[in-house]
């Protein structure tokens, strides 16, 4: 199984499946190239649509939703209170690269808030962006709310008016040799992710 990096907090413990985490685009590429995979879970609809259009996967289903938050260094030394603070020159900000869903969402959120940020780095997946904050190299990063909460970093909520609801989409890969089992696995994913702190598939930004 391949899963978006941001799902690692929710799926790590499920030993029944061997899970590889990565940037959604990277996962999609693996499936395109015929990697031996049963299930793929992407962090956005668009990537999955691409796979579906190429006939690589069965019908996709939304399995969970998430929102964005600002992960800040432990103790929030730079006093980040909201998106506007990310434009301050003394705050080192990293984002995920716009080519991965988290980066695209972050850009959307910043655009909607009208905040101009000069990130120091565009990390290749959202996990790396969180890592930079955990290690103290960055003061803040816009990441999934589940990541910001789960890791030992501070998290600053983004008001729902500026926030965005992201949806995780799962699908069974057509080349899978265990498609029945894979389908059952996908069917159980919403409850599991819910238990791990993700929002329900149909949640609006208010519940985030």
């Amino acid at each position: 199984m391949l899963a978006a990096a941001s799902l690692s907090t929710g799926l790590r413990e499920y030993a029944q499946a061997r899970v590889s985490f990565g940037g959604s685009q990277q996962l999609a590429l693996s499936v395109e190239e015929g990697a031996d995979v049963d299930v793929i879970v992407t962090a956005d609809q668009r990537t999955m649509d691409g796979l579906a259009a190429h006939g690589r996967v069965e019908r996709p289903a939304v399995v969970a939703s998430n929102t964005l938050a600002i992960a800040v260094a432990p103790g929030n030394p730079k006093g980040v209170r909201g998106l506007a603070d990310l434009a301050r020159p003394d705050v080192v900000v990293v984002l995920a690269h716009p080519s991965v869903p988290a980066g695209k969402y972050a850009a959307d959120v910043l655009g909607r808030a009208g905040v101009q940020v000069h990130p120091k780095s565009l990390e290749l997946d959202v996990e790396s962006a969180v890592q930079k904050v955990v290690l103290g190299e960055a003061d803040a990063a816009i990441v999934y709310a589940t990541d910001a909460r789960a890791r030992a970093v501070g998290d600053v909520a983004i008001p729902s008016a500026q926030n965005i609801v992201t949806r995780y989409v799962a699908a069974v890969v057509k080349t899978s040799s265990h498609r029945a089992a894979a389908r059952r696995y996908v069917a159980r994913l919403p409850a599991r992710l819910r238990a791990a702190g993700f929002s329900a598939p149909d949640a609006s930004s208010d519940t985030g």
């Binding site: 565009l122 990390e123 290749l124 790396s128 930079k132």
Partner: peptide, 27 residues
Amino acid sequence: TITFAGNLPGRTQTLPLAVYVALQTDR
């Protein structure tokens, strides 16, 4: 490089990093 220096075009995005990023958008 990606772990230590990050990935920013013109500053730390070397060709291998650019390849990786491009792989996600424009194969």
